[in-house]
Every structure is written in C-alpha cells, then in structure tokens.
Amino acid sequence: MNKTFARVLPRVLHALALAAFVAFALFPLFWLLKVSLTPDDLMYGEGVRLWPSRVTLDHYGAVLRHSQFPLFFRNSLIVSAATGLLATAAASAAGYAFSRFRFRGKAWVVGVMLISQMFPLIIIVAPIFRLLAPLGLTNSLTGLVVVYTAFNTPFAAFLMQSFFEAIPKDLEEAAMMDGATRFQALRHVILPLTLPGLAATGGFVFTAAWSELLFSLMLNSSAAVSTFPAGLLGFVSKFSVDFGQMMAAGVLALLPVGAFFLLIQRYLVQGLTAGAVKG
C-alpha cells in the first residue's frame, strides 16, 4: 500500500503541476473567447462568471461587417508571409556561413548582428521614415516587408546556425568530393535535411511580423495598407467600451498565429536540441 503510494505520488504531483501550467497559459485566452461570446445584455451582470448563461456570435458579425478587418487580415498575411520567406532565406545563408566557415571578420559580423538586437527600436523610427519616404516605401506593404526582414534576420540567422550545426560536415564534403560545388551540395544535400529548421525559423519570423505594431503604426497611416495589429488598436481606441466586439477582434487576430504556432512549435524544440549538441 505504502509502496504503491510512494510510486504514484510523484506522478500525481507531476500531472498536477502541469495542469496548473496549462490552466495559467490558457486562462487569459479562454477569457477573451468567453467575453467575445457574451451577449451585450449579460456583459456586466455576468461579468465575472466563468461562462455566460447564453452565447452569441453577434460580436463577430459586427466586427466583420463594421470594420475593415478582412482587408487588414489580407495585408498582414501578405507582409508576414513575404517577411517569413525573405528573412529565412537571408538567415539560412548567413547561418550556414557561421556554421561552416572560419573567415576574416566573422567576429565583427556576429557582433553587428548582436548589437542590432540591443537597442530600443523606437530610436530608429524617425530615421527609417526619412530613409523610406523618398523611395516611396512608406504607406506601402513592401516597405514593411523590408523593415521586418531586417529586424528578424539576426535572430533567425543564429537559429539557422544551430540547425546547421546539427548536420555533419562530412555530408557536403562527400558531395563535394564527387564534384559538386559547395552551393550545389548545400542545395541538394543540406537544405532538404534542414526542412524542419527552415519551417521553425519561417514560422518564428511569420509570428513576429504578424505581431509587430510600432513600425506598422508609424510607417503606414493609410487604412488600405494597415496590418492587423494597427487595425485592431485603432478599433480598440474607437470602440473602447464595446468589450464584446474588441475581444471578438482579438480572437480573430489570434487564430492564424495560434494555428501556425501549434504546427511548428515542436520543430523549434527539436531544432534547438540538435544544435545544442555541438553547442
């Protein structure tokens, strides 16, 4: 009796602790969903109940009808997908160089990338605006893609480096012995093996671009090129008492990144694990 207890107890504690983490992680999102489904007449009377006595989809209907969210959604999708592709491409090239070459100035290149992660980005809003405006890249989705690609490349490059470290160097050396150039070896031998890494990096960048608010707000003032975060914030300040509609809009903003993240998160752990082996 005592022995079974001693064997079961750690497992029960383990499960309880994990349940607490799951509850903590999901509760705020659950609350967002709950308020978005609560009819207006119950909003205040049942404000702190865990689930309303009636639910409605009215808030979602209102958000989709009264706002330009479908447009914002499309803009965000274009910007995030393009940023994900470009940053991953640039970052895999850089990450590959970090992992495979020793070259003069390497420490400087890494240093530049580290410094680019160290300052508050607010300080470069005005200079970037002055740089992009004459090129016609403000109030433009392309401008946002350029800026986001630059912001996300450094971290993505370090991530890709760790994925490449996990792949033995012998593989492309063997291909190069057989007469392939290094680039051919990279394309045909190494890249297919890093697909999970590419997916994780791309997903990471996509999520970051989808979430970015400051530059989207500052560089693009016209609604036609607003992304979801800027649109949502505008909506929130305009309808600041309509909690149901605000939270419905929040849930809509969350759907694509949430789904994307659930798909790629396991590659993120796998890839980092593989990279850490060689440290």
């Binding site: 992680a25 967002l32 308020v35 205040y44 404000g47 993240f261």
Partner: peptide
Amino acid sequence: VQALVFLPWAVPGFLSGLTWAWLFNPVIG
C-alpha cells in the same frame, strides 16, 4: 500539453497587453 503551454508565445505582444488589461478590469475581468 507542450503545444498548449507554449501557446502564449504566439500571442502578439500588444494583444497580450490588452487581454491582461481586460482581466484586471473589475467590470469585465
């Protein structure tokens, strides 16, 4: 379980802020 506990990371920063501001609001949270 791993997918669920990692989910907050996918939530855009400003939306996390809004969500928690609502949770702290006595009328609605």
